[in-house]
Lab assay of single mutants.
Amino acid sequence: MQAFVKTLTGKTITLEVEPSDTIENVKAKIQDKEGIPPDQQRLIFAGKQLEDGRTLSDYNIQKESTLHLVLR
């Protein structure tokens, strides 16, 4: 499924993900596309910070959801 990641600069990245993907996995995909190390990434969805060990389905993130990427 497709999900979108919006950065603070307003850029939107499109990712191909599965509901079973972990947040860690998603961060690795963002690193592949953008070169941002996962340890600098914080992903926010519905106002919550997403934890590495959880999956997209844990957070009820469905296709075409938009996550927000904040860098630390």
Results as ranks from 00 to 15, higher is better:
Met1Ala: 03
Gln2Val: 15
Gln2Gly: 05
Ala3Arg: 02
Ala3Pro: 01
Ala3Cys: 15
Phe4Arg: 07
Phe4Trp: 06
Val5Gly: 01
Val5Arg: 00
Val5Ala: 02
Val5Phe: 05
Lys6Val: 14
Lys6Gln: 11
Thr7Tyr: 13
Thr7His: 05
Leu8Ile: 13
Leu8Cys: 14
Thr9Asp: 14
Thr9Cys: 14
Thr9Tyr: 14
Thr9Ser: 13
Lys11Trp: 08
Lys11Phe: 09
Lys11Glu: 08
Lys11Pro: 04
Thr12Ile: 15
Thr12Glu: 06
Thr12Met: 12
Ile13Cys: 02
Thr14Leu: 12
Thr14Lys: 09
Leu15Phe: 07
Leu15Ala: 01
Leu15Asn: 00
Leu15Gln: 00
Glu16Ser: 12
Val17Leu: 10
Val17Phe: 05
Val17Asn: 01
Val17Thr: 03
Glu18Trp: 13
Glu18Tyr: 15
Glu18Gly: 07
Glu18Thr: 15
Glu18Val: 13
Glu18Ala: 13
Pro19Gly: 08
Pro19Asp: 06
Pro19Ile: 09
Ser20Gly: 11
Ser20Ile: 06
Asp21Ser: 07
Asp21Met: 12
Asp21Lys: 01
Asp21Thr: 10
Asp21Ile: 05
Asp21Gln: 04
Thr22Gln: 04
Thr22Ala: 04
Ile23Asp: 00
Ile23Pro: 02
Ile23Val: 10
Glu24Gly: 13
Glu24Arg: 15
Val26His: 00
Val26Arg: 00
Val26Tyr: 00
Lys27Met: 06
Lys27Leu: 04
Ala28His: 12
Lys29Thr: 03
Lys29Ala: 06
Ile30Thr: 01
Gln31Asp: 05
Gln31Thr: 10
Gln31Ser: 12
Asp32Ala: 14
Lys33Thr: 08
Glu34His: 08
Gly35His: 06
Gly35Val: 02
Gly35Thr: 03
Ile36His: 09
Ile36Ser: 04
Pro37Met: 07
Pro37Trp: 06
Pro38Leu: 13
Asp39Gly: 11
Asp39Tyr: 13
Asp39Thr: 10
Gln40Lys: 12
Gln40His: 13
Gln40Val: 11
Gln40Met: 12
Gln41Asp: 01
Gln41Tyr: 13
Arg42Cys: 14
Leu43Lys: 00
Leu43Ala: 00
Leu43Ile: 09
Ile44His: 11
Phe45Lys: 03
Phe45Asp: 01
Phe45Met: 07
Ala46Gln: 15
Gly47His: 05
Lys48Pro: 01
Lys48Trp: 07
Lys48His: 12
Lys48Asn: 10
Gln49Tyr: 14
Gln49His: 12
Gln49Leu: 15
Leu50Arg: 00
Glu51Pro: 02
Glu51Lys: 09
Glu51Val: 09
Asp52Met: 05
Asp52Ser: 07
Asp52Pro: 06
Asp52Trp: 03
Asp52Gly: 06
Asp52Thr: 06
Gly53Lys: 12
Gly53Asp: 12
Gly53Thr: 10
Thr55Ser: 08
Leu56Trp: 04
Ser57Val: 07
Ser57Cys: 05
Asp58Gly: 03
Tyr59Arg: 00
Tyr59Gly: 01
Tyr59Asn: 02
Tyr59Ser: 02
Asn60Ser: 08
Asn60Ile: 06
Asn60Trp: 05
Ile61Gln: 03
Ile61Glu: 03
Ile61Leu: 06
Ile61Ala: 03
Gln62Thr: 14
Gln62Tyr: 11
Lys63Gln: 13
Lys63Val: 08
Lys63Phe: 09
Lys63Tyr: 08
Lys63Ile: 07
Glu64Val: 05
Ser65Val: 13
Ser65Pro: 07
Thr66Ser: 06
Thr66His: 15
Thr66Gln: 07
Thr66Val: 14
Leu67Ile: 12
Leu67Val: 07
Leu67Asn: 01
His68Ile: 15
His68Ser: 06
His68Met: 12
Leu69Gln: 02
Val70Glu: 13
Val70Asp: 08
Leu71Gly: 07
Arg72Trp: 12
Arg72Phe: 11
Arg72Tyr: 11
